[in-house]
Write a protein that binds this DNA or RNA. Structure first.
Length: 260
DNA sequence: TCATTTGTTTCATG
DNA sequence: ACATGAAACAAATG
């Protein structure tokens, strides 16, 4: 699912294919993902070019003139760049047609994402309670954001209003790499452990991005290629277990991952 | 038919 | 005022 590494890949994809081409037309497919009027989107995009990309947490911002189109991908979203005459991708919610006979489609099979037009990324982030981007921050920022958190570490990592970008899948991976139990209490972790955790987040995301955010391409000693109940832990060969933490399916190795 | 999936929001409680 | 966490919601699949 689109977490930080996935959205970073989408950003690179848009950067590579969709910039500096005149937008001839905008196609809509009557979808609830639109957070603003069709007229607003058309006015902001048609006849213009996308001139840059930014990502914050799981959000992607595409610059057009002095505005941005914001995309959030929900559970099932992604981007497809395709040639005129090719079949339109299924489940497209919005398509930008460029003047080079190619198009960029925002796909959302389950329509759980959102698209908006905004003026200011900072203001938008504030309105949407979006914390710092965990991959674009240093340890000091991370600690500051985590300082007032209590409860279990997994929920804290997934709380987008403090540190944004980590979702259910990568939370499991980070905690597995860190040999930390998902239910560990954050107040039981000392500064050294937090530092180590932060470094692990950076490493896991860097590795994931280098592998196109495809979980099955990750190194074999990662959890994600083995993330289902009863599989063997790549480290100790014990059985991976599934539990529920904060209402989310959580996979971990009871042998390797300890509390605090 | 219904449990499952995940990201987000909402709401009751501490 | 603020944090937490449980529950609800979105849509589609098997």
């Amino acid at each position: 699912m689109p977490e930080l590494p996935d959205v970073e890949i989408f950003r690179q994809y848009a950067e590579k294919h969709a910039l500096n081409k005149k937008i001839k037309d905008v196609e809509y497919f009557d979808s609830r993902v639109l957070q603003t009027s069709k007229q607003m989107i058309t006015t902001s995009l048609k006849g213009k070019e996308l001139s840059g990309t930014q990502r914050r947490g799981k959000y992607l911002f595409l610059r057009a003139g002095d505005r941005y189109m914001v995309m959030h991908f929900g559970m099932t979203g992604y981007l497809v760049y395709f040639k005129a005459g090719d079949d339109k991708p299924d489940y497209a919610q919005l398509i930008l047609d460029f003047d080079n006979d190619h198009s960029l489609a925002y796909i959302s099979k389950r329509k759980l994402g959102k698209i908006d037009i905004i003026d200011d990324i900072e203001a938008y982030s504030k309105d949407n309670d979006l914390g710092i981007d965990v991959y674009d921050s240093g340890f000091d920022d991370f600690m500051k954001a985590m300082k007032n958190k209590r409860g279990n570490i997994k929920s804290a990592l997934m709380d987008q209003s403090h540190v944004s970008g980590i979702g259910n899948i990568y939370a499991d991976e980070v905690l597995y790499q860190e040999k930390l139990h998902p239910g560990a209490k954050i107040q039981d972790l000392d500064e050294n452990k937090m530092k180590s955790l932060f470094n692990t987040i950076q490493r896991v995301f860097r590795t994931a991005i280098n592998h196109k955010a495809n979980p099955d391409d990750l190194p074999d000693h990662y959890l994600l290629p083995h993330r289902s109940e009863g599989e063997s832990c790549p480290d100790c060969r014990g059985k991976i277990r599934k539990i529920t933490v904060s209402g989310r399916s959580t996979y971990f190795c009871p042998g390797c991952q300890v509390k605090g």
